Simulated scan of single mutants.
Amino acid sequence: MSILYLLILIGAIGCMVLLDRRFRLFFWRDTWRATVVGVIGLVFFVVWDLLGIALGVFSRGDSPISTGILIAPELPVEEIFFLAFLCYLTMVLVTGVRRILDRRILDRRILDRGRRRG
């Protein structure tokens, strides 16, 4: 039994928090909305996993880097952290790419106005 994988996931979530805070992408932009979206995403994927487990599609397997702690049959505690990281990463990427594209559109409009005037 080890906690290496869980610690790696917690570290990755911590990195997402720092990135989110620095650029105000998700939780630091709108905490309430981000919480709702994050919880809905997490619940969706946990239900997805539970259905996969019930149908025999997913199984835990043995890994020397996992804790071995199960919160349901075939559902290790690390899976919840992984799913939370997956949802958080997705939203940071979506909001980050959106910000980049919005900035490029704004820059292009400013450039086009300058060309029409000059």
Rank of each mutant, 00 (worst) to 15 (best):
M1C: 13
M1N: 11
S2N: 14
I3Q: 11
I3C: 10
L4R: 11
L6P: 09
I8K: 14
I8C: 14
L9G: 02
G11I: 09
G11K: 01
A12R: 04
A12Q: 05
C15D: 09
V17M: 12
D20M: 05
D20T: 02
D20P: 06
D20K: 06
F23T: 05
F23D: 10
R24C: 08
R24A: 12
L25P: 01
L25S: 07
F26V: 07
R29W: 11
R29D: 14
R29Y: 09
R29N: 13
D30T: 05
T31E: 15
W32D: 10
R33S: 14
A34V: 01
T35R: 10
T35L: 14
V36K: 09
V37R: 08
G38A: 13
V39Q: 02
V39E: 04
I40F: 14
G41M: 03
G41S: 02
L42I: 03
L42A: 05
F44R: 10
F45E: 04
V46T: 08
V46K: 07
V47E: 08
D49K: 03
D49T: 07
L50V: 11
I53H: 01
I53M: 06
A54Y: 06
L55P: 04
G56M: 02
G56T: 02
V57T: 10
R60L: 09
R60Q: 12
G61F: 07
G61C: 08
G61T: 07
D62Y: 13
D62W: 14
S63P: 02
S63K: 03
P64C: 05
P64N: 00
S66V: 15
S66F: 09
S66A: 15
T67E: 00
T67D: 02
G68N: 03
G68S: 00
G68V: 00
I69Y: 07
L70E: 12
P73M: 04
P73W: 05
E74P: 06
L75E: 08
P76I: 01
P76Y: 05
P76A: 03
V77H: 04
E78Q: 02
E79A: 01
E79C: 00
I80W: 00
F81I: 02
F81C: 06
F82W: 15
A84M: 12
A84S: 10
F85S: 01
F85T: 04
L86M: 11
C87K: 00
Y88P: 05
Y88Q: 06
T90C: 13
M91H: 12
L93T: 09
V94E: 01
T95Q: 15
T95K: 15
T95C: 13
R98P: 07
I100M: 12
D102E: 15
R103E: 13
R103P: 03
R104K: 09
R104P: 03
I105C: 03
L106P: 03
L111M: 13
D112E: 15
R113C: 07
R113K: 11
G114C: 04
R115Q: 08
R116Y: 13
R117F: 13
